[in-house]
Design a protein around this nucleic acid. Structure first.
Lengths: 353, 353
DNA sequence: TTGTAGGCGTTATCAG
DNA sequence: CTGATAACGCCTACAA
């Protein structure tokens, strides 16, 4: 497995090495292999993508030639007549947000598996940048996966009119979605807190317009009602470490002994600030985050959190997209992925009053 | 800024909406806009790519039509005659490794700026997967950026024979590279440690075949010699949290009072294990990592580390690639990016004996 | 300055 | 089962 089968060497067998801009070598075309196999180019094309519609002999001839020239069909030339690019677009709100890493990987693996290429863009959390990126991609891809999109519903639907779109982490009417269902993990977390003697819980919310934040709050309210916990909602400035630190004061004043935050970053920032103030976690206050991001176990104590299976969402979304593309799946399907509680050190029994 | 200018609506002005596979709408071609502008398609092409080679009046006519139809040239059709795809390939060893996040973002921004599209793949740390991914990409992109590649030098050179290649984080003869120069950050770190009373330093090395690990060790030796510190090298099993925990014992036995590790993950794992054993950081032992990954400030104490400007490397690499592509840069250029010490809580004055 | 014509590498539709 | 031939959407000589 190395650079042995260099097409360039073989190409020179024809006595003429094709040069291409930048002094790089061009690659073989179906005509090259047609010549070697002694058949017509259209037969080569058939042998390559409609297996069984050429004679076994011809098939072998073609395959040998393909092997010899190390031929790979030009994706661009192929895209022209078929309209299919074999590219999948993925737009994430923020590449540096660790929540998305697994998602990107999941999508990458899923598409590579089906010989699709992943085209990536990020929107830097801006709705207009997102739309721009999406428009740019429209011409390049067969389908678009939007992870935690920031643009309007109607913009998403407008995109969906041109290409297949799958949305992750948000529900958009009329567009296929993949969303983690927070209720299971939330139920586990709240029950765990209740069992540890907590009676009053605070939820630190995320961005005002975040669809996910509202769903989580709803889930928490329901679970608290069920477990007979009082639940209050606090607003954060930004869903970051900094935002978590800033909300510490409100948390203390709320009188809650358990806190759940919109995401792990908030939880970690909050924990840092509380510890600076001399408040023991989890002895005096339990903290539960959301997402189980990279680094959630770096803290002391390590962070209890509700894991969203973003990696799974990524691969689910690509699979869904692929099904959409070959028509084996309807347009209006919504998939749910389950969340689960990851119990670590930042939550536990209430010790001090 | 929203879905108002939907091409589909406008297209129907022609009285015929084109349908395309999956019930999605096709988009306008230069012929559509040629018709509206009342000129020939080739004139449209010229107006679009060779500004100044058509009359001002025609130019405006064309631009208006482009606006009206919301026209975007089909990248695939464009790629065919020109051979230029306007795609940049980026292959990273491990998408979930936070060291790469900024790099990916840097590359993404840099390419989007020049209207290039970023195609991403990961190799899951495997040399053969990497080569496969690279081969797959070869047909799709104008150039390939390899971040911390795991494949052989000769495979890289073989790729470079077909497309422009830029390597990040490794030096390959005859291929343009962008590498962070560790020496500055290392110098700062070692001087800081020496100033804090440390006399014996240990370096926890990375993977045996890692080019970077060796460079860092060399740099540390040089700096230690300069600052009159004793330096010993310890081997790790894997460059992960787990590997860091496992090496804790060897670190203690080494008698060193300051430790530098191949990367932050090792440093954090090591710190966790030492703290479990009751060793105070930094009072009894100072720890310095490498890279300043996401989460390096989640720990208590937060991690002192030498930051590699991976984001900058990413954008430098794309810029270099773009220059390579338009010929304004030679093939053998190597760029260096500077590292710097990020002084946080895990290093400091030696207190206990 | 503009139009005409040919080609880029593939696939698809015909005949044969 | 196979071979011509015409698209696909765009670019680029070349000619007008």
């Amino acid at each position: 497995m190395s650079g042995d089968s260099d097409p360039a060497e073989v190409l020179s067998r024809e006595g003429q090495i094709k040069e291409i801009g930048g002094g790089k070598k061009a690659s073989a075309t179906i005509y090259d292999i047609a010549k070697i196999a002694g058949v017509n180019a259209s037969t080569v094309s058939r042998a390559l993508n409609k297996p069984g519609r050429v004679s076994a002999k011809t098939q072998k001839l073609v395959e040998d030639a393909v092997e010899e020239l190390n031929f790979r069909a030009n994706p661009f030339a192929r895209a022209l007549p078929t309209g299919r690019t074999n590219n999948l677009g993925l737009i994430v709100a923020d590449i540096t947000n660790p929540s998305f890493f697994d998602l990107i990987r999941g999508a990458g693996k899923g598409s590579a598996l089906q010989d699709f290429t992943l085209v990536l863009a990020e929107s830097a959390e801006s709705g207009v940048a997102e739309l721009t990126a999406a428009r740019r991609m429209l011409g390049t891809v067969d389908g678009l996966i939007l992870a935690s999109p920031r643009m309007d519903d109607k913009d998403i639907r407008s995109l969906a009119r041109h290409k297949h779109v799958v949305v992750i982490n948000r529900e958009v009417d009329g567009v296929p979605c993949v969303i983690p269902d927070a209720s299971k993990g939330i139920g586990q977390a709240v029950r765990s807190l209740a069992a540890n003697g907590h009676r009053k819980l605070a939820f630190v919310a995320g961005p005002p317009r975040s669809w996910m934040s509202d769903r989580r709050w709803e889930g928490i309210q329901a679970a608290c009602e069920w477990s007979r916990l009082a639940a209050t909602r606090l607003e954060s400035t930004t869903p970051t470490l900094e935002g978590g630190r800033k909300v510490a004061r409100a948390v203390r004043e709320s009188g809650a002994t358990a806190v759940m935050t919109y995401n792990d970053l908030l939880a970690i920032g909050l924990m840092q600030e509380l510890q600076v103030a001399g408040i023991e976690v989890p002895d005096a206050l339990s903290i539960v985050g959301f997402d189980d991001i990279f680094g959630a176990d770096f803290t002391t104590p390590s962070l209890t959190t509700i894991r969203s299976p973003l990696g799974e969402c990524g691969s689910l979304a690509t699979r869904l997209m692929l099904d959409l593309l070959d028509g084996s799946q309807g347009e209006t399907c919504t998939l749910h992925a389950e969340t689960e509680l990851v119990l670590r050190g930042s939550s536990g029994r209430l010790l001090s009053a």
